[in-house]
Design a protein around this nucleic acid. Structure first.
Length: 215
DNA sequence: ACAAGGATCCTCT
DNA sequence: GAGGATCCTTGTT
């Protein structure tokens, strides 16, 4: 059974922690999630920093939906919309391990093989055959996310490719990965997740100035 | 209508 | 480690 919308109705970082080890299924392929990044409300790395637009509209909608967009004119990237409706936040899937439909994945990844099949966000969407056509879709339909069986061991680090964001947001350890997994790219900068207190996600994340521009 | 830049991937050095 | 591919989205004229 797919995870219910309520699963996603909390802070994006909490959802990011909870998604590692879960499975994503679409078009004959299932991937175990090994790497994600949280894009929170009020985050200057978040596409929603410019307010609501046609592209990022799914992020402002209810939780439990997909936000898929085209990056660099070539690559599609899959996000899971989190938090309440009206607040724009999401979790980007950056890596996965094929557990079903490996032949399809090889095909969609142009005959490649091994751990580099799905160790980047563009590769993940390619493996799952996702495009902007799926942006806004529910996550309990043809595209679905299934719960994990065991508590994974997590490692965290700064997010990739967000040099345009404020320094504090660039440095925030909101990238989350499965410890020891070969299905994770850019290993440098990842370290074990510290125990509960400290950089925990549950406590207040004060949104910086001017987050919500409703147009 | 125009210009700038991007939550990347691949190849080559 | 560096650079090109490639085109949509966004903000500006």
């Amino acid at each position: 059974m797919a995870l219910p919308p309520e699963f996603y109705d909390r802070d994006a970082l909490e959802v990011a922690y909870a998604l590692i080890g879960c499975r994503v299924r679409h078009a004959g392929v299932t991937l175990r999630i090994t790497e994600v990044e949280a894009y929170r409300a009020g985050d200057t790395a978040n596409h929603a920093r410019v307010g609501r637009t046609a592209r990022n509209a799914p992020m402002w909608g209810p939780p439990g939906h997909a936000y898929v967009y085209l990056c660099y004119g070539m690559h599609h990237l899959l996000n899971f919309v989190t938090g309440p409706e009206g607040e724009a936040a999401a979790v980007l899937m950056r890596g996965g391990e094929p557990v079903e439909g490996l032949d399809l994945v090889r095909e969609r990844r142009r005959g490649r093989d091994g751990p580099t099949l799905c160790d980047g966000p563009g590769k993940v969407a390619a493996a799952l055959a996702l495009t902007t056509a799926q942006s806004g879709s529910r996550l309990d339909g043809p595209l679905e996310v299934l719960p994990r069986a065991e508590e994974p061991s997590l490692i965290v680090g700064p997010r990739i490719g967000i040099g345009y964001a404020l320094p504090a947001d660039q440095a925030a350890p909101w990238r989350v990965a499965l410890a020891g997994s070969p299905w994770v790219g850019h290993r440098r900068g990842l370290r074990p997740l510290p125990p509960s207190p400290g950089a925990g996600p549950a406590q207040g994340f004060a949104s910086p100035t001017g987050s919500a521009a409703i147009t």
